[in-house]
Design a protein around this nucleic acid. Structure first.
Lengths: 350, 350
DNA sequence: CTTGGCACTCAGTTGCCGAGACTGCTAAGA
DNA sequence: TCTTAGCAGTCTCGGCAACTGAGTGCCAAG
């Protein structure tokens, strides 16, 4: 925090803005000058506060719903609050404990861990939580197994450090024997070592099939399996807590709610909104218009990436009204991401 | 339909009841005697209709929101309508085509097929659709493969007719060799033939491990994998279309909506509500209080099972306001279930 | 620069009235 | 005995006016 309390605002203005935001987050009611002087120890009268507020409004940090109402923060006001004025909290120890417990109990299956985390985050945040499922392309190859099922069909299984990540059924054109499949599996395992999935090239696979005198259909089957494993091209996400949004007074307008539900169900828009936070170092916040989606101007999203080993492989987000408790939610999100990352390293197939 | 038009009601009463339900479904407004005589050709005056309506109310088929309002069907009224009065429709050819197209394009992966169907059903029904994911215990065993990953860990893959249904990681207590795992896989595959998963007993597995002189840890790993494959003990479901419910005028009460969203997210309640329809022959309808859940008295659910081969393995349901177009939705649900069943038989691993 | 005081503005609430929508009942008619 | 026209009675709903009270902006004095 700079000595004048943040970006061009003198100390008192900054404090008043912070208080207005804080109070509005707590009450969801426009904040009046008098309410402020009564609840907080400002050392000045309401008239002075009114003057300051008028200037804050001129500066674009506050808006007035109507002449005889108190003030409400604008996007810029929230932005200033989040970037410079806000007190950065730690996650509540209780919450940390609950997350640990939940994750310890969860099965070793990746999807279940992610979904459990999402549900918990929805509950703890009292907002809508969503978590992207891991992008697998930075996973490391561990094993491939081609299984012979009948003279006509086989199935390829790819194991990566992140789990068993793909099964793909294929057809055998010229009757390959079970033995061929085993030998090809062995050759591939020997050659592909511990490479990252995205580094595996067609020629690596081709080398193996040619060496064993096997056809292109098998080569394609293998490539296809590896591709399915790494691409997962429609990144999916799990969401939880939509009903929490209904508690917020801003939802007495049903249309807003509708658009949000639609967007959540669509997933793609939601994913695109947070995708650029994948490599963030700390929680990223997008406020109202910053989201760039007409229907979401009344909302904000907090996003934190989570890691698997060294790499960020997904993100964990909280969506709520613009008037959300940023400090608490940012702490909650990053704490959860951290715990999730730790838990995932247990799951790693070494 | 009996000659008097349904269960204890004379023909005219039955017709009037049917018309009231039909009209109420269409308009969501209490139906007045005059509106009825004007819109439908009843051949009697509104006064007569009033008398009949009073009797239908006495019989419990209709209720009056307040003295100076028209009538609204009660649960019993809807029940009578669905069981005896309603015209049973066929699915609209357009809808059938869209489902076919959607399912043809869908990937071969079971989960994706189910989710695609759910989304489509949500859209076409304009209500909330949910589909249970297949219970696997009536699937048939096809293959098991134990894969050696390191001196300490392995992974077991189980393939059933329904797909690759389980991966389970296990620890190797006394260093088994890769070869041991291969031989055990072969022995198991030879012995377990094409049995249904639920018919496989511990002694079958034990016989194989003993024969090869392998320890109990491997036996347990195999049993565990088979168990995971068959049990899937928390039956999950996919849901879509919650936002459609917001269009219904009955939702201007937010509390109702909240409870519904919560129930949908919980999944378990929803699953229990329809579980007993798994072996139904035709669409089953549960209306209002019949659902036995306080918060859902304003809703109805239509459920139809879908099959994989000979067995019903899951259900497809539509949840909407009690005032839903039963005829259309029942036709839509059963048509979709049929198409889905057909599609699934393509996916079968023969 | 701060502050008390005051006039002014608006949203929200309450209470009231009349219109309109239906019903139930009654009495006459088929 | 069933049907129907007519009518009185009940209840909801929209609109309107009056009022309340929260909050501001501005001014003049400290």
């Amino acid at each position: 925090m700079s000595s004048d309390g943040g970006g061009g605002l003198d100390k008192r203005k900054a404090y008043i803005l912070a208080t207005v935001v804080y109070e509005y987050i707590a009450t969801a009611e426009p904040v009046a000058s008098q309410a402020l002087t009564q609840k907080y120890n400002l050392g000045v009268s309401s008239a002075t506060v009114r003057n300051e507020m008028a200037e804050l409004e001129a500066g674009g940090y506050l808006v007035q719903p109507h002449t005889s109402a108190g003030r409400v923060p604008s996007d810029a006001g929230y932005r200033m609050y989040v970037d410079q004025l806000m007190h950065h909290e730690q996650m509540a120890p209780d919450d940390r404990k609950r997350i640990r417990d939940e994750l310890r109990d969860a099965s070793r299956e990746l999807d279940e861990i992610i979904e459990g985390t999402t549900r918990l985050l929805g509950r703890l945040s009292k907002n809508l939580a969503f978590v992207t499922k891991p992008a697998q392309d930075s996973a490391t190859f561990r094993h491939i197994q081609l299984i012979w099922l009948s003279a006509r069909t086989g199935v390829a299984i790819v194991v990566t450090t992140i789990g068993v990540s793909a099964q793909s059924l294929f057809e055998l054109a010229n009757d390959a024997s079970p033995d061929d499949l085993t030998r090809l599996s062995n050759a591939l395992n020997a050659r592909l070592g511990s490479r990252m999935l995205r580094e595996i090239r067609e020629r690596d696979v081709a080398a193996c099939t040619q060496e064993l005198g096997l056809g292109d259909d098998l080569k394609n089957a293998v490539l296809n399996a590896l591709h399915t494993a790494s691409a997962d091209d429609s990144p999916t996400l799990s969401a939880s807590g939509a009903q929490n949004l209904l508690d917020q007074p801003e939802f007495h307008d049903l249309r807003k709610l509708r658009s949000i539900l639609r967007i959540v169900e669509e997933q793609k828009t939601l994913y695109d909104l947070v995708a650029d936070s994948m490599n963030a170092e700390s929680p990223e916040v997008k406020i109202g218009h910053e989201l760039g989606v007409e229907e979401m101007t009344d909302f904000s999203i907090v996003t934190v990436p989570y890691r698997f080993g060294q790499h960020a492989i997904g993100m964990l987000s909280i969506l709520g009204p613009r008037r959300m408790p940023y400090g608490r939610l940012m702490a909650l999100a990053s704490g959860t991401a951290e715990t999730l990352s730790e838990r995932l390293s247990d799951v790693e197939i070494k």
